[in-house]
Design a protein around this nucleic acid. Structure first.
Lengths: 420, 420
DNA sequence: AGGGGTTAGGAAAGGGGGTGTAGAAAGTGC
DNA sequence: GCACTTTCTACACCCCCTTTCCTAACCCCT
């Protein structure tokens, strides 16, 4: 339980600025110190210091000079892609997906492990994760020392500081010390969080929320949730469970949700909800693949492109439910941007977006609506593993200024601190 | 439109600490530097510096010593009630309510002005405000120089920095430069904001949100809204309209709301909504005072105390609607505390709270719910004018460190800057 | 080839902020 | 009256960002 209001120190300013500078370099590589200063609003001196730090860390390199038209040419810096590797782990109900990134956040290797419904014990999940992590490191052929960290996303409620999965609805986990279990198999610094926040941080660093103060990242997958970016940072809530938007009541006495309530957003706009709607409209629809959500949503997207009337109606109805929920978010939080993320949003794409925009504009109040954009996530890869890797990147960046090695309350764990 | 993420400077830290120390002194007066350091988590040196500043400003005074059991006795400081006066202005649809506070936030004088339905021109409202402000200053007999500032709350969307009422639904105002108009009549520094945020800031300083990082202040009056305290500070949103929770859709195709949608929270739990429910249940009910919301809600509260079955049902049903909305807030934001504020909440009191708690516990997810308390506002006076006065207090405190007089982007206006 | 103009970037100084510590100040107890 | 204890102030120190000055590096012109 967080005690008292947030304690801010001047070091937080430094960390935030470090993030900002690196973000900018990753977004626009190569770039010059001058451009960085202009883009971040920091002074040249501060930018120079931070760039120096990042150069020392080997995260960026100097890559020549800009052409000059009289005057000393600007030195250019770029991400040093081979300066380190980041691993993002996306643990979901039925699979573990792991990606290894270079520092430019390009995917160097992938590994997937399927989990059968029965495999719900923490040790089993940890085993899959360890195998996949080992696999991507081997594939990419990077030396272990180059791996700056491993970010792990696990559904449910997570305490990132203690590394405990407090509650995972899929497997009925309660207070599983996941990070400690993983540390027994994985020798790199580990960071734990949940997929909602992973997607949000991915958008914040590399996606549609870059440079925005307030954003909502709506996550449309099997489950539904929202990552909240408020005041330029992630909002976590007192007990790390902010963003549970999927169980907002949309329809009084509506469909029964696994959370026990009726009419939750998730039951209408989650993949199973969409499938149910399709089934109700057209019980024998060829689009329906009863046991395969991905295949069904794919088929639905293709049918929409072919102007299939049933598919169009399913998407339109789904968009309406979704829009009702998003309109409430717009009114309540007045964000700059609402990002539609995760695989259902990516698959349904523009047609869904168009319907959502139209329907939101009918529901939301005019003034807040005018200030907010609704967009699809521009992130081409899996946002969850990217976001998880970003947590590792943030972690690596956080401890830069720290007295050498002495981690005080750093959330990072490594093999050297197994359990206890 | 806010550009880019929030820019934090070390001065913000100072300001936040200054707030924190004064808040603590006001809450517990007299108190010692030692206690302040313990309560705020700051070092003794910092506390001493800040206390010194506040002493210089005349906002607090030294009031003797604590008894000692060996050792130098602790010096005690207390709010210097007569060190200044703050004025809070609550502009509502049908009245203007003004209170003058001493620095202990005790009410020294009140003034009310009624506005007839026709009186909707900005000049008329400004006239009422100026008259009431003049009245409280005269009543309290304070010299003008002692008035540190006037906080003004006006419904709708407000840009506190420019002092413009961008949109006020009651009177169909659009971009009225209210602060400039007021500055022609009022010679004190002026601060503008809306009642939602006024209530929130009142709770943050003096009420149930003190010392909490995340809180939601639910405002139950004629209109309904929520003040959001996130990360220890007020959340405003990009275009200053965060908190429009009253128009969250609660019932699909429900009651028609003046915002044009159906089923908004406000149509069920706002005072007019409650009256309508009473009318539907018992058309000729003696509790109903058709033209007087306050009287009706008062009567309802008394009837509940007398266990009148109709009144009990009205309150229970209202609580259910309210709870559905609050449960969504709890899930989404995971706050430490939800505060029920404004006159409807104050009037209906404990019976409403009990029903709300019970109903929220049925709707919200277990984990976030476990971390959040739901309470009635402990603030005994009008929270809106108190909050408005608090804005003035914050304003007075903000410019302390500033180079003398030179206001850079200070929101405060005074007579010396009339229009343009 | 050598100077003048121009722009980049580093080094140092300065201001704001918080913290640790020595020593003065102000009590109690013997 | 002296020792002990505790508070509180003053100062040095560290962190962070910014401003300013100066040197480095390049272009163009003569």
């Amino acid at each position: 339980m967080g005690v008292g209001p947030v304690k801010r120190t001047s070091r937080d300013i430094r960390t935030a600025n470090r993030y900002e500078v690196l973000r900018q370099i990753i977004a626009e590589s190569p770039t010059s110190r001058q451009e960085l200063a202009a883009a971040t609003g920091l002074s040249l001196a501060t930018v120079a210091t931070l760039v120096g730090e990042l150069l020392d860390l080997g995260m960026i390199t100097e890559v020549g000079f800009e052409d000059s038209a009289g005057g000393r040419p600007r030195g250019l810096v770029a991400v040093n892609a081979s300066g380190g590797a980041l691993i993002g782990v996306d643990i979901a109900e039925t699979y573990v997906h792991v990606e290894l990134f270079d520092l430019g956040l390009n995917v160097l290797a992938r590994a997937d492990e399927d989990m059968r419904p029965g495999e719900s014990r923490p040790e089993q999940v940890v085993g899959h994760v360890a195998a996949a992590v080992g696999s991507v490191v081997a594939q990419a052929g990077v030396e272990g020392a180059r791996v700056l960290g491993v970010g792990v996303s696990v559904p449910g409620q997570v305490d990132r500081d203690t590394g405990i999965s407090e509650y995972a609805p899929n497997w009925d986990w309660h207070d599983v010390p996941l990070l400690d279990l993983l540390a027994e198999h994985i020798a790199y610094p580990l960071y734990l969080d949940n997929p909602l926040r992973a997607c949000a941080v991915a958008e914040l660093w590399f996606g549609a929320a870059r440079g925005r103060g307030d954003a909502v990242v709506v996550n449309l997958g099997t489950g539904v949730g929202a990552g909240l970016v408020l005041g330029g940072g992630l909002h976590r809530g007192v007990s790390n469970s902010a963003g549970e938007w999927g169980h907002t009541t949309l329809v009084l006495d509506g469909r029964l949700c696994h959370c026990g309530n009726h009419g939750c957003v998730e039951t209408y706009v989650g993949a199973p909800g969409i499938m149910q709607h399709l089934r109700e409209l057209s019980p024998g629809s060829p689009l329906l693949h009863p046991e395969d959500q991905t295949a069904t949503i794919d088929a639905l997207a293709r049918a929409v492109a072919a102007l299939d009337p049933v598919a169009l109606k399913v998407v339109r109805d789904t968009a309406r439910y979704l829009a009702a929920g998003i309109a409430d978010l717009v009114n309540l939080l007045n964000p700059e941007v609402v990002v539609l993320s995760s695989w259902v949003a990516a698959t349904l794409g523009e047609p869904l977006l168009a319907e959502v925009r139209e329907a939101v504009s009918r529901h939301a109040l005019r003034r807040p609506l005018a200030a907010t954009e609704i967009v699809l996530s521009p992130i081409p890869t899996d946002p969850v593993s990217l976001g998880a890797a970003t947590f590792a990147l943030e972690g690596a960046l956080q401890s830069v200024g720290q007295r050498n090695g002495k981690r005080t309350t750093t959330p990072a764990r490594s093999r050297t601190a197994p359990s206890s």
